[in-house]
Design a binder for these strands. Structure first.
Lengths: 336, 336
DNA sequence: TGAAATTAGTAAAACGTTTTAGGAAACACA
DNA sequence: TGTGTTTCCTAAAACGTTTTACTAATTTCA
């Protein structure tokens, strides 16, 4: 019960060498440090047989690295973030890194706390879908020289790498599609967050309408308060349909708004495809399974995760020069 | 750029006291150690003003605790696990703990690696939805005296705390419901994993059928291979409906099987509610939004998370005596 | 042959904390 | 006045690594 873990000291004693030697062997510096074949083999055998694993905490204290990547998102239970988390975890794991994550609920205060917490854990790199207002805290980790990659949401004030999608074009395409289908009274249901990404989603929508020569009054943009519960959102959207019955197409700017929206539509007499075209941001089983199926602007999860991890490891390996990259990935409009 | 973080030494120097004193103050042992009010205040002011945060790594090395809880699940992107993760994160955070997680893909080998990794990071407690075959590795952390709570899946060989749901009764209820609706040809779509929980789901189903006096041949149990892709699962299920067209009720034993199943049903002529009753394990928006809505056996996520965290902290505080608890929570059959 | 170079290893400091063991000064009391 | 006792604080060890700076023995080669 509770037997103390082996330390490098135990291995050294057993092999009759110094701990320095063991450390060199364990860290692949054996040849470089001219350790004899015999000693290398002896030590490796003991390590293997006893199942010795170096204490990462001690290693971190000494080296300053933790082999941990901090992931900060709005809500890990959101399928988009959960999906990204899973992909990142996988890719990071292959390089010997682990993920430690936290949800911010989009609060700058919580973000600050988390960053401090991660700092004190000597996290090696940060992947963040940032809340507005977290600029200073993020800047502080950049100043610490740690790799930082933002994704999903961009903070224009910061000189930092970013991986995102082409929100503007995605919305533009969606609106264009509505118009092609003969819809003339378009609605955008979005959230009242002051986030670049959300603004782009609105801009693309508006410009497409303008470019098509539609009257501005014909379209409507509804901003659902971020903090609203699902029920409140539904009520608000049902009201929208009541007050603007002419609406014949709706673009939902986030996956959770789409879900509230579809539930709201169920409460109206509107029949999707017949009375109403619908497109949702972020694809998911839920849209594929819906009757009728819902068209979606699918974010390329795999590409996003891959770009993030590539950038993280690029920065991790190239400590010297700090180059930043901005990766904007295309969104696919899945028509259903 | 890259200014070194403050250490307790810096604070001590600035306050003109020893680092011991600073440490005592920081750890709330000031009164107990008779530190004067004046010194306490001076130190606290400096700490506050300079924004000093103790290095958790050093603290961990010295104390052997990390304030980290390790979460090991099959797949963090599965909404059930993502939901639990989020709730645990929240509850742990309030007590100053963080979560570090990993997905096992239900492989014992990966589980072992992860446990070793977590060990070397001196994780304070483990929350695990275990894969079969991981018994030895889990036993080893129990032997280390670390708190361990299993959930979702139970390993009968281990003497360890567990939080789960009443799978047997849930399935029993579901089958009973089918029969009450006049269905006579029931199917259970489950997975070919050798997991206690999965077996219970099957047993409840079978016993309900027997208790109702239905002929055994009338019902069917399909086991979808775990490693199958979504597409393969769908093909398999479409085949099932072809070969056993008399089936008039289906219980899906996991949320992802239900999704495959619903997609499969779309490919047949079957009309849900009319030709076919459907119940799925694990509730989700997807079932609420489906047309028609799908009845579900809703796991009480909040209760599960609460029970897990309560047990973790109970064990964490009461290092001395190792008592184990088995919490079985009821499942709610949501009829839609 | 003797100096230089190479080989094979080690001792000890350092990372930033917590904690044990103790010490000096002030006070209490007989 | 001397002796406990209390108050306030500190020195130093320890946690388990990595890494720098060394040494002793052997080999090379002019």
């Amino acid at each position: 019960m509770s037997t103390k873990a082996l330390s490098i000291r135990d291995i050294a004693a057993k092999a009759n060498v110094s701990i320095t030697t063991v450390s060199f062997i364990l860290n692949g510096k054996a040849v470089e440090r001219n350790i004899s074949k015999a000693v290398i083999q002896r030590v490796e055998e003991i390590v293997e047989a006893d199942g010795y694993k170096p204490n990462q905490i001690a290693r971190s204290l000494r080296t300053g690295n933790s082999q941990i990547i901090g992931l900060i998102v709005e809500d890990i239970a959101n399928p988009f973030f959960a999906g990204i988390a899973r992909l990142l975890e996988d890719k990071a794991y292959r390089k010997g890194y682990k993920i430690i994550y936290s949800s911010t609920e989009n609060q700058a205060g919580k973000t600050r706390e988390l960053i401090n917490l991660f700092k004190s854990r000597q996290v090696d790199a940060y992947v963040i879908a940032p809340a507005q207002g977290a600029e200073k805290d993020i800047q502080s980790i950049i100043d610490d020289g740690k790799p930082v990659v933002l994704f999903d949401r961009f903070l224009p004030q910061l000189d930092v790498s970013y991986v995102g999608i082409d929100n503007y074009n995605a919305s533009y395409q969606a609106a264009q599609q509505f118009i092609k289908e003969g819809r003339r009274h378009l609605a955008l249901v979005t959230v009242d967050l002051d986030i670049q990404q959300i603004k782009e989603r609105e801009d693309g929508f508006n410009v497409a309408i303008k470019d098509a020569g539609l009257k501005k009054e014909a379209s409507v943009v509804i901003k659902v308060p971020f903090a609203h519960s699902r029920e409140e959102a539904i009520t608000l959207l049902v009201d929208m349909f009541k007050q603007a019955p002419q609406i014949d197409a709706v673009l939902f700017a986030t996956n959770y708004l789409a879900i509230s929206g579809l539930l709201a539509i169920k409460e109206t007499e509107k029949i999707i495809k017949q009375d109403l075209s619908v497109i949702a941001y972020d694809d998911g089983d839920i849209f594929k399974l819906h009757t009728p199926q819902i068209s979606a602007l699918a974010q390329p999860l795999e590409d996003i995760a891959e770009s993030i991890i590539k950038e993280v490891f690029q920065q991790l390996s190239d400590k010297s020069e700090r180059t930043i990259t901005r990766t904007i990935l295309p969104v696919e409009l899945l028509l259903r």
